[in-house]
């Protein structure tokens, strides 16, 4: 399992969510979504806690958490690069953009840079087809990318993070 670290999470943060959904059957996905909002990812102790509180067997919680692409079992970098994998982006060269990101950061889909700054995630169509190829970083959309402009964006973000720290 690629999920294990020994961090201890603050389980009180999820209490309200669990109370809210307790009486609504079939709410596991919604609870996991909230949990991910709260913790940034799904820590193993949180998953275990959710299983206990909802009565859904841990094997099933894990099954759901690993089925949907939205859920992450590992923390992500400061910047989450969501690279659109839509058809229009493909036709307009998203493959080259992915290559550029990999060249620049040395990470592939699903990986995080060693400095914890960037995580690359290929995502389903973002629906900005007229701006393709597109990536979205922490909610900001970057469209009509070229390999070069992509690298520029990444360098600017890295610089910004460097100044901040």
């Amino acid at each position: 399992m690629d999920c294990c670290n020994n961090k201890v999470s603050d389980l009180t943060l999820i209490k309200e969510t669990l109370d809210h959904y307790k009486s609504i059957p079939g709410s596991l996905i919604a609870i996991l979504q909230k949990a991910q909002d709260i913790y940034g990812y799904l820590p193993i102790d949180v998953i275990y806690h959710i299983a206990e509180e909802t009565g859904v067997a841990p094997a099933n919680v894990m099954g759901v958490a690993t089925f949907y692409t939205q859920f992450r079992l590992k923390p992500v970098g400061k910047y989450l690069i969501m690279l659109c994998q839509g058809t229009a982006c493909h036709v307009n060269g998203s493959g080259l953009i992915e290559q550029a990101i990999t060249d620049e950061l040395g990470i592939e889909d699903g990986e995080t840079t060693e400095d914890g700054l960037f995580t690359l995630k290929n995502v389903a169509c973002l629906g900005c087809c007229s701006l393709s190829p597109v990536m979205m970083i922490n909610g900001e959309t970057y469209g009509s990318l070229t390999p070069d402009s992509t690298k520029t964006v990444l360098r600017q973000l890295a610089e910004k993070a460097g100044e901040a720290s």
């Binding site: 996905i29 996991l32 949907y68 692409t69 939205q70 859920f71």
Partner: peptide, 8 residues
């Protein structure tokens, strides 16, 4: 509303 979680 129920939000999906990423599965075509």
């Amino acid at each position: 509303i129920k939000a999906g979680a990423g599965a075509f």
